[in-house]
């Protein structure tokens, strides 16, 4: 985008004016990062009494999503963040979900809205949507805190297998 500036002296009869052009360039920005201190470890709790179920109360919220985005008014007015499992798999009989908490931090602009708890799989799931031009700030405490939770799939209790302990990696993508 460019604009033109002019200056003129305040003379009643014949003001003298002169102008020059000035170009303003704004870059396209679309960056996302996951910040955390440790690996997420979600463990199932063995029952202590015969006849009861294992429990899956384990929750981890040590990771934060940071992002920076500059929109394109016509071509890319909004952006969203998607998550998928890139490596490993969730053991049978269980499901892994992630929930992005509402934004908090020192950033500025139009932050995205969390879509709530999302069950993770091999396909991309939208976690945060409708991001406008903004930056979240960097590090823990800036952006959206991620809450991972392991859940029992009540229909598939029979598939639980203690030899299926897994390590999975989750990929986040900022994209329209």
């Amino acid at each position: 985008m460019s604009c033109c500036l002019t200056g003129f002296t305040q003379t009643p009869a014949t003001p003298s004016t002169v102008s020059h052009s000035l170009q303003i360039q704004i870059p396209q920005v679309s960056l996302v990062n996951v910040i955390g201190n440790s690996h997420v470890k979600l463990a199932l709790q063995a029952p202590i009494e015969a006849g009861t179920s294992i429990t899956t109360i384990d929750v981890d919220s040590s990771f934060w999503l940071n992002y920076s985005f500059i929109k394109g008014g016509v071509t890319q007015s909004k952006n969203h963040i998607y998550a998928r499992i890139a490596n490993g798999y969730v053991p049978m009989g269980l499901s892994l979900s992630v929930y992005a908490k509402p934004y908090q931090g020192i950033g500025l602009g139009g932050f995205g809205i969390s879509v709530g708890a999302v069950t993770l799989g091999q396909n991309e799931q939208r976690v945060i949507e409708n991001i406008s031009s903004c930056f979240t700030g960097t590090g823990i405490g800036n952006g959206h805190q991620l809450v991972y939770q392991l859940k029992l799939d009540s229909e598939k209790y029979d598939l639980l297998d203690f030899e299926q302990s897994q390590q999975v990696s989750v990929v986040y993508t900022i994209s329209d």
Partner: peptide, 11 residues
């Protein structure tokens, strides 16, 4: 205007 070098930073 320069692009930020890291996610979460401003322009």
């Amino acid at each position: 205007v320069g692009a930020p070098s890291e996610a979460g930073l401003m322009i």
